[in-house]
Nucleic acid binder design. Structure first.
Lengths: 125, 125
DNA sequence: ATATGTACCATCTGATGTAAGGGTACAAAT
DNA sequence: ATTTGTACCCTTACATCAGATGGTACATAT
């Protein structure tokens, strides 16, 4: 059902995310459907469980799937809506605008990078 | 007049910038004063000319000094005003706000970093 | 016991960026 | 000829991060 291309430039966890999202779009996965457990899927695809866990946690953040602890992981009730929304698309747009703003103010790319590193690492996440 | 600490964590070009700015603040340097040429200063401080050139070009961008080509480099007429304005202060403030905005939207620090790298490197400088 | 998600610890590889140095060359002036 | 700023080329050392993997452990359930 899910295939992984080890030679792709696309990261493994990202391939997982996109394939699950596509499965929801194409109705191969419906709200409430159970997903394979992290360790199961990792075993089938011969991936590390941490890689699958990363994909799952990001999918859960975007409300595409729902973790129910010891009961397993399921497709989120609003998954069909939420697969359309990609936070990274929004993020890339905003970032382009912000960087353009910094450059227009005369900042060097190097200075912008340093300020960015400060903002991300200084302010705890 | 200018001293460089090779063991400081502060980059050499940055030490140069700050010392020249301070010299303007404390009136040791006045508008119109000639600065040592890039190669001269590099020789005196035993630095690479590229390092001094970097400091000078950043100081010129901030209108603290003024390059007059073959005639040399001079303190900018509005230097006393402009040494007060540090673009990096503004940059750090803005960046903090923007990153906070991204995080509030649910973005991972890793995703934020990737989007940032895209925005800076994809869009030509 | 076994399985669930989750949270830590750690390591490694590859990519990228900064800071700094070194070289070479140019036009425009003295 | 020499000096000015400036613009390229390339290299080195160092740091950080992404991606991925491995191990261990936990509470909560069946």
């Amino acid at each position: 059902m899910i295939t992984i291309d080890l030679d792709s430039k696309e990261p493994l966890f990202s391939q997982l995310i996109n394939q699950i999202k596509k499965a929801v779009e194409t109705k191969k996965l419906s709200p409430g459907d159970a997903l394979p457990s992290i360790r199961q899927l990792a075993n089938e695809l011969e991936l590390n469980s941490k890689t699958v866990a990363k994909a799952y946690s990001l999918l859960e953040r975007d409300n595409v799937i729902e973790s129910k602890g010891y009961r397993g992981t399921f497709v989120h009730p609003q998954a069909p809506k939420n697969v359309q929304v990609d936070i990274n698309d929004w993020l890339n747009e905003q970032m382009q605008l912000d960087v353009a703003r910094y450059r227009k103010a005369g900042a060097t790319d190097s200075e912008i990078r340093i300020a960015f590193t400060n903002a991300v690492s200084q302010t705890g996440n």
